[in-house]
Nucleic acid binder design. Sequence first.
DNA 1: ACTACGTCCTGCTTGC
DNA 2: TGCAAGCAGGACGTAG
Length: 278
Amino acid sequence: MPELPEVEVVRRGLAAHLPGSTAVEIAVLNSRSVRRQLGGAESFVADLRGRRFESPRRRGKFLWVPLAGADAMVAHLGMSGQFRLAEAGSERPKHCRVVIGLDTGSELRFVDQRMFGGLWISHGNSDIPPELGHIAPDVLDPGLELAALAHRIRTRRSAIKRVLLDQTVVSGIGNIYADEALWRAKLHGERPADQLSQRAVVRLLEAVQGVMGEALEQGGTSFDELYVNVNGESGYFSRALAVYGREGQPCERCGTAIRRVAFTNRSSHFCPACQRRR
DNA sequence: ACTACGTCCTGCTTGC
DNA sequence: TGCAAGCAGGACGTAG
């Protein structure tokens, strides 16, 4: 669910409250949520207990909180994951999977209905957790070279939308923002990446940056209570979506009905007039 | 190396 | 009303 803007909203929420606090008591309520931890739930608890959190960081849709000294708690929200900060002892939300009691009297809760997300402790002192080495820089990374990335994208023979979703090429983009950016750039997602001009791909990447930047200002996209900030609040960007979830409604540019078609076990939304396959 | 597909989960909505 | 199928924002392993 959460794509880059939503994960960044969560990161900022954690950044405001978490740094400096220490994990004192950890409860793994469902071990599947720590399945990427070698050694399982016991090892997760042992690795985290007594450790102090520093400032949370992010690459694409992955989030990690460095621990004082070394190591980091890495998180991916999957389709339905949330972090919630609340007073210890207050009622826990449904689907609460991991609880991290802090020395401040608050609890950090990892909540995840569908359990595609998860947490683990990454060891070492590198700039980025080694498990995330294959994740490409994301579109809001200040060091991103748009032209070079566009060239790389244009070496792929897959459909451009598939390439946008490939986190080893560029990270942070998911199904919603891929559809929105393709609409802004007036490109059909099925067009092969290697048949697009450099200019078109650069424009597309700028559209991704634009739509994600705007989403971030609105606090991210939420359709329901499945995606919320650490304080439980929803974002407002869903109101600004041009194609995603708007099947049958008129395109804002030309009035043609937005179409939805199957795409790799999910859906693509586009304007059949503005976004031609050619 | 690139590419495409199936799988891991739960719960809500839709249609018969 | 009941029930099954379909759908949901993602990543990874595997096979070709």
